[in-house]
Amino acid sequence: MAQVIQYLLNGIMNGALYALIAVGIVSIFKSTKVVSFAHGHVIMFGAYFYFTFAVILPGAEFMPDWVAKWEPEWLLAYKEGAAMFSPKAAIAAWVSNLPRIVLGLVGSIVCNALLAVFIERAFMRPLLGQSSLSMILCTVGLIWVLEGSASLIWSADIDQVPPLGPNFPIRFTVFDSQVFLFSSSVVNFVIALILFIGLMLVLRYTRSGVAVRATAEDQSTAYAMGINVPAVFTTAWVVAATTGAIAGAILASRNGLSPTLGLFGLSVLAVVLMGGLDSFAGVFIASMIIGIFEAFTQWQFGGEYAEIVPYVLVLLVILWRPNGLMGQAEIERI
């Protein structure tokens, strides 16, 4: 029983991360009808920007010392006498890392937004009006461009980055059984959840959200109603890239940073298709299902089998519901 709860929780934590990445793919699809195969690699760029601003830049000569390691008087006093691996020590370590974490996050969000604008302007805009298949293939081409440039700019070695939240183990009992979690993964979970719900609310209740939904419904009518459709496209890419930057920072702090991070995007693509491309709710459910299934597979069959779980599940679901769990069926006319 203890292990069931343990792996269930692990699965939900992972599922939230899936949802955070998937939200980018869905927001691009909803407004532009393009499914970005390169989203994983945009995320990888976010992770590398985070690495640049949180590790490389604070270590540079011209930066003041407090950016790399912030140790005001009261923090030293607080840290006094804290045992290793205790929450107190972990929080103190986190606070002293805080300046570079903030710098890293801001830097990666800004840079990723610029990257998204560039991609949209340079590669996607010229394809406007062509079949969506060729736009999708264009994002496949982007995979290689992004992967190549990442290993050209940064080295292909695996690097470490500071986690977003304080990292200490949490132990508590549920139904008389011990459950164990890392606080940083709880923080990641909360961040993912807030971003996901926030985006959904923005799309639902703000003017720009309505513009995005109108564009998704019918581009030319949206144009006629005075909606700046190209601006909506750019916004969608920027939203995807900024959520991707945060997801990248989380992923990099969890699994380490390497150019193979981009492959994660493909399994998220499976998640998105399983949920239904145009449904935030469906994608959220699919993320949770896949996250939990992965955790249980890891428990029962070992980590190796976990890597094909998203693909097996998406195949099964697509056979049963060709448009994903909650996706809208496309109406075709002859």
């Binding site: 496949v140 081409g141 982007l142 290689w144 992004l146 190549g148 440039s149 050209l152």
Partner: peptide, 12 residues
């Protein structure tokens, strides 16, 4: 890396 970039650019 350069080969990858060229490949990708060719597609695009």
């Amino acid at each position: 890396s350069i080969r990858d970039i060229v490949f990708g650019l060719i597609i695009i």
